[in-house]
Design a protein around this nucleic acid. Structure first.
Lengths: 206, 206
DNA sequence: ACAAAAATAGTACGTACGTACTATTATATT
DNA sequence: AATATAATAGTACGTACGTACTATTTTTGT
């Protein structure tokens, strides 16, 4: 039992788990290309090469699928944005590095930030999906606020800085850049965002 | 014919036009409570007390209904926000007055800004609805940019101010305030927005 | 008041949705 | 290799959608 010959490379994941990951990967692509509401059981089944019922069995309900997608996106975000930037960096440099990864993190899995779209979609629909969504977003905000506080301890930021205000404004620039980008009013190298970001940092520094 | 007795007060609008306005009013309420995609022919018909087909005849297609809703919202925005603030005001005071009306303009017809939700929903769906949406938003942005330019002529803003950048940042603060508000992180008197706004004005002034 | 025209209701159709339930495969354990 | 178990497919049901098409009612102009 312990040393049975394995035909397929043992990734430590059961077949079901592999399939589940594959489904979620397709789902995230759909969700970031269109929107979370556009991820329908039927379309997702077709996209992942499963039958509707086969896919359905993995999640048990539409709502649970949506929660799973949100958490999967958060995992990917942590991997592609957060973990790529060393916690050893000097706070301001770290925030800068995070900001630029943030603004393009979904590239490769779709064309827009799932959290942005989903927040609007679920802003008026309390429930497990909204909970998961808000939880992940708040975590990210707290993470940024923490670094801002380090910047204060570090004397990079002024001692009277309001970290929550800082992150709110940073988050706002992110949202604005997205919106302008959709309307063809933000360049692909994010000029508006960059200028705003630099101004923001400068204000909280010196 | 010219002086026929009219039973109902003559508003100058035909019966159909009155009904159309009534439908659009209900539609906007639905759209600002939930989202534009949630405005379905069936639900809207029920909400306005018409049959599905009766309502449908007014617009001819779902898409045309959506365009009509967007334009109706823009009219209401012009009425409730733009026209309420005198063009005679000093530019900075005018921008301030506009900003505060803006951030609560949809109150009374729903709970959130139609344009914000719809932009996300239609960011990846080119077509007449997106066109109408972007057109109205760009008009509003241009309107604000113009006032910012007046503020420069007026010597209220620094002469090297970038008006597009200014409005981008203002718009961003608006978006951020909404998002934070949904997550229960922005107070009802919009403290984060106010602080950010004041900082923004101060930076472009003196 | 009456005829013409417009506005609204009724009905029907094809499609897609989410979710049960049962049948059939494929995987895992001994 | 055989068996127990898990994973997937198949089928079906009720609901809601957008949009035709026809019938009926209401408004409008004379």
């Amino acid at each position: 039992m312990l040393d049975t010959i394995k035909q397929s490379p043992d990734t430590g994941a059961s077949k079901a788990e592999q399939t589940r990951q594959h489904i979620l990967s397709e789902a995230l692509f759909l969700a970031t290309s269109r929107s979370l509401n556009d991820v329908t059981i039927g379309k997702l089944a077709k996209a992942s090469g499963l039958s509707k019922s086969g896919l359905y069995a993995h999640f048990g309900s539409k709502e649970n699928l949506q929660v799973s997608i949100v958490n999967y996106a958060a995992e990917l975000f942590a991997e592609k944005v957060i973990r790529e930037v060393s916690a050893q960096m000097e706070p301001v440099a770290r925030i800068t590095a995070l900001a630029y990864r943030w603004i393009n993190w979904y590239e490769g899995c779709g064309t827009k930030c799932l959290f942005m779209g989903a927040t609007v979609e679920f802003s008026d629909k309390p429930g497990p999906v909204q909970d998961a969504l808000f939880r992940q977003i708040k975590r990210w905000i707290s993470y940024l606020e923490n670094i801002a506080e380090q910047a204060i301890s570090d004397k990079s930021f002024r001692s009277d800085s309001n970290c929550q205000q800082f992150v709110y404004e940073l988050y706002s620039l992110f949202l604005g850049s997205q919106k302008y980008h959709w309307m063809g009013k933000e360049s692909s190298d994010r000029e508006l965002f960059t200028t705003g970001f630099n101004r923001l940092i400068k204000h909280y520094s010196h």
